[in-house]
Design a protein around this nucleic acid. Structure first.
Lengths: 154, 154
DNA sequence: CACAAACAGTTGCGGGCGCAACTGTCTGTC
DNA sequence: GACAGACAGTTGCGCCCGCAACTGTTTGTG
């Protein structure tokens, strides 16, 4: 019975899953950011806000916080930036005037439409290093961890 | 043939692997940080430096940069902090006087010895949500991605 | 209706981070 | 030996972030 990962008494950072996940996420994030940082001058929080608003066809800051798990101030500042650039706009207001629902503007929709295929292509390229079975196993583990940490949406 | 992850033309953030990895890494990191942030007043960069120095029984800043992929200024500041607290110390100097090799002090070794079992226990708890087979599949995918992105040590 | 508590979102503040430029050391070339 | 370029590590600067406190709105309770 061999110890696979962290079952020993010694800490090898190279095999320590929390560390590996952080390093990997940073690497992937940096790789992905190439498609929106330089060319479109979006930062990570703005990109996530656009992705969330675009996907849902409109939502509130609170919904973005809930699904992305970003801090609400980070979301707030990203929204302010996107409003300034007129990539998103506020909807009049429904019943509850505390909420300020957001939607993409025309320019925002165009940028979103340009970003989505690039992002999906990057993801495909990233995951191309795995066989179909390996990918399935990896994503299963990912889902287990998300569920265990209560990260699933909503 | 069903599309598993990002094979469609629509972007669902909830199923987008780069996003999920970031969210997961942040969650795991926050969870792990409980063992060293409050009680020992270590921040993530300091923890990583201690872990690296402790594991290797002494190393240079450059080696920490290479294996953790942290930015060199972040490493430099973490080292400065640990020096101030006398948890690490500089070794005299070998041949090359540009390098300033580091080792743990007595207090540093004691703290390291206390941290390691806690960190490993956290990792075990984290991974406890997966069966043995699932864990193997997940770690395999992790390794594929690391290799593909050139994150492997050295 | 009045008031307290909860909630959506914003902002001042302090701290951490990456970038670029720096110091000091080493190495190769003539 | 002198000098240019590479390298290890540090630091000034500006920006981003999280925390705590705030505004404005809604909801529940009497």
């Amino acid at each position: 019975m061999r110890a696979r990962s962290g079952a020993g008494t010694r800490l090898r950072l190279e095999g320590f899953v929390p560390f590996r996940l952080n390093r990997l996420a940073a690497g992937v994030s940096g790789h992905l950011a190439e498609i929106y940082r330089g060319p479109l001058a979006l930062e990570v929080p703005e990109w996530r806000v656009m992705a969330t608003v675009g996907e849902r066809g409109g939502c509130t800051a609170q919904q973005i916080v809930a699904s992305t798990r970003m801090h609400k101030t980070r979301v707030s500042r990203a929204i302010a930036q996107l409003l300034r650039r007129r990539l998103i706009a506020r909807l009049p207001s429904p019943g509850d005037r505390r909420e300020r629902p957001l939607r993409l503007t025309g320019a925002g929709r165009r940028m979103y439409a340009r970003l989505v295929p690039l992002a999906l292509a990057r993801e495909r390229a990233l995951l191309g290093c795995m066989s179909r079975g390996e990918l399935r196993g990896f994503v299963t583990g990912l889902a287990r961890l998300e569920e265990s940490l209560g990260l699933k949406n909503r």
